[in-house]
Simulated scan of single mutants.
Amino acid sequence: MLPSATTHRATPGHLHTQKWRGRVGLTLVACLSVLAGMTDAIGFMASGDFVSFMSGNTTRLAVAISDGDLGLTLRLSILVATFVLGNALGVIVSRLSGRRALPLLLCIAALLCAAAAWPFEQQLPALLAAITAMGMLNACVEEVNGLPVGLTYVTGALSRFGRGLGRWLLGERRNGWRVQLVPWTGMFVGAVIGALLERHLGLQALFFSALLAGVLGVVALKIPRRWQLGYMPR
């Protein structure tokens, strides 16, 4: 009789590989979340607008509409639309590059460098470049061992963690809910770092975000190809 797929998946070698694929994937998620947190804090402190936290910009957009502030409504509408287009562009770049993290992260680094180098008096183009980069960042990792993860937003991660905690308190012992704190922790740490950098450098602190993106792209070359394919959007 041929072994079933379930039996094959349960072999020690496969379990060991799956464990390491999960650890590497979560480490990458943590580092990319640090990048997102840094960039969002820098952009927010320099301009008052969120770069990756579109829930905040959406709420501000609704308030601007209710206040009849057409200028702010237009500005925030452009920011939210740019983030959506950045996500789409991330998937396109990922597919065209054979679903490899390095080309995607180098594009992100280039956009962040452009944002950092843009004259401070003309903030909107710099913000649009940074927001596009953060949208693209979400195409770097979509899931790890079947668990969905978010890189530039953590509301979903906290919600999944909270629901998992509720099930655990009820006696259910499901796996995976604890790891949802990884992106939250990464974004929080990154935001602290970004805030400190912005206080000294202003919007030019985005050069450090660009540097981190480039370094992570090079480090990603060490991740086995089949693992990267499992992390990135299909």
Rank of each mutant, 00 (worst) to 15 (best):
L2P: 15
L2Q: 14
L2H: 14
T6P: 01
H8G: 01
R9T: 00
T11G: 08
G13P: 00
Q18A: 12
Q18W: 09
K19V: 07
W20G: 01
V24D: 02
L26S: 07
L26D: 12
A30W: 14
A30V: 11
L35Q: 07
A36D: 11
A36M: 03
G37V: 01
M38L: 14
T39C: 09
A41W: 14
F44P: 07
M45W: 10
M45A: 04
S47Q: 08
S47T: 15
V51N: 00
M54I: 05
G56V: 08
N57C: 05
L61N: 01
A62P: 10
V63H: 01
A64G: 02
S66Q: 11
D69T: 01
L76D: 07
I78L: 10
F83P: 04
V84D: 00
G86I: 03
G86F: 01
N87R: 04
N87T: 09
G90A: 05
V91K: 04
S94C: 11
R95E: 14
A101T: 11
L102W: 15
P103D: 08
L112Q: 08
C113H: 12
A114P: 11
A115L: 10
W118F: 14
W118H: 15
Q122M: 10
L127D: 07
T132I: 08
T132K: 01
M134S: 10
G135M: 06
N138V: 03
N145H: 01
L151V: 11
Y153H: 10
Y153L: 14
Y153C: 02
A157R: 00
A157G: 06
S159G: 00
S159M: 06
R160H: 15
R160K: 15
F161A: 05
F161D: 01
G166L: 15
G166M: 12
W168Q: 13
E172W: 08
R174K: 13
G176Y: 02
W177S: 02
R178A: 04
V179F: 08
V179W: 13
L181E: 00
P183V: 04
A191W: 15
A195P: 15
L197E: 05
R199L: 13
L203G: 06
L203M: 13
Q204D: 11
A205G: 09
F207Q: 00
F208N: 00
S209R: 09
L212I: 09
V215E: 01
L216W: 07
L216Q: 02
V218P: 05
L221S: 03
L221A: 01
K222A: 15
P224W: 06
R226D: 13
R226L: 10
R234V: 07
